[in-house]
Computed example of a mutant assay.
Amino acid sequence: MWRKLGQFIVKHRLPLLILLALLTAGMGYLANKVELSYEFARAIPTDNPKYKAYQEFRKKFGEDGNLLVIGFQTDSLSNASFWNDFTATSKTVRRIPGVEDILSVATAVNLVKSTEDERLLSIPLFRDTLLSQQKIDSSFALLGTLPFYKGLMGIRINKQVLASKKREKVVNDITNIMGDFGKRHQVEIHQSGLPHIRTILAVRIANEMKWFLIASFVLSALILLLFFRSLSAMWLSLSVVVIGVIWSLGVMQMFGYKISLLTALIPPLVVVIGIPNCIYFLNKFHTSYNETGDKKQALVLMVEKMGIVTLFCNLTAAIGFAVFALT
């Protein structure tokens, strides 16, 4: 069977190469659309009691995963110049596309009971304008009885934005604006919340995937040069591995998977698994060519002898990784 397969490949090599190029181009289009996952990877089984309790909690109370919290500590908050700059900065952050609302000292409200219909009325503590020092002091006297607002700013970001690539720009814009505010007044700005944490993790995963992929390519190229001492053999093997990486990302997009902490390891794994296969085939081709002196016959012998070997080698590796699905 493997001999017939090798003869078929050699005989129809041009149509097969054209078909491979077209399919790779299609996979490349899909791979270009693969997205980063901004969710935390599930680390425990779905039947775990703690996981079930967490899901029940989310079902009952919901999940407020779109709140970015900013905090700072200062004794100058009630100073007129500091306060007016803080409110202006809050308005600038509010105008960022994707920001839905801001909860902070500047937008603080006091709940007052209505004497007419016994409802609670929300009365803003600070008017939306430049305030004098006297107005600020009187409002802060009332704010002192509302410790909920002390030193914090909560920024609610649109959930659709957080689930897309736009989240990085939104979070970075907020970070830059608040960072400039902190520099102007020599205060240290602290950020937290799921949008901030998940964005940092997503960017870190993307950077690590890029560097791991580059490192695996460079190391593989050096190994190929060391073994074959031929640039043509090195570039041929690397081209095969590149096609494998493109197909792996394209298949991820085809089946609706995103790049997460675990799936980011697939491209480097394809490189380090694919390079030994290329070495096996090239080594067998050179051995067969030295014996026969015919390139076509050497290619057929290469497929015949090494096809079953590489199949079972890769099958063994696949079974090893599949074991993780059972743990």
Results as ranks from 00 to 15, higher is better:
N48D: 15
L213K: 04
I279L: 11
L194Q: 10
S232G: 10
I275T: 13
I136F: 05
A53L: 07
I308M: 11
N172F: 09
R13D: 14
E291G: 04
S139A: 15
G98V: 01
I157F: 04
G6L: 08
C313R: 00
V241W: 02
A221S: 15
A233W: 12
G62K: 07
K150E: 08
V309Y: 09
L213Y: 08
K59A: 11
T316C: 06
I214V: 14
Q160F: 09
W247T: 14
A108R: 08
I102F: 05
T115A: 13
F217A: 14
Q253W: 00
P267W: 01
I246D: 02
I214D: 10
H185P: 08
S122C: 04
V99Q: 04
L238N: 01
S81T: 15
A322H: 03
I157H: 03
T46P: 01
H196Q: 11
N314V: 10
L261K: 12
I174V: 12
F321L: 10
V34W: 03
L265Q: 09
K135H: 14
L265K: 05
V171L: 00
A31Q: 03
L152V: 13
I214L: 14
I205L: 06
T24Q: 00
L142A: 15
K33S: 13
N79D: 15
L226C: 11
P49I: 00
N32C: 12
I102C: 07
S260W: 03
P147V: 07
E291C: 06
A206R: 06
L225P: 06
N110L: 14
I157S: 05
W235M: 15
A108I: 05
Y51I: 01
A206E: 13
N79M: 08
G144F: 00
K169V: 13
E35P: 05
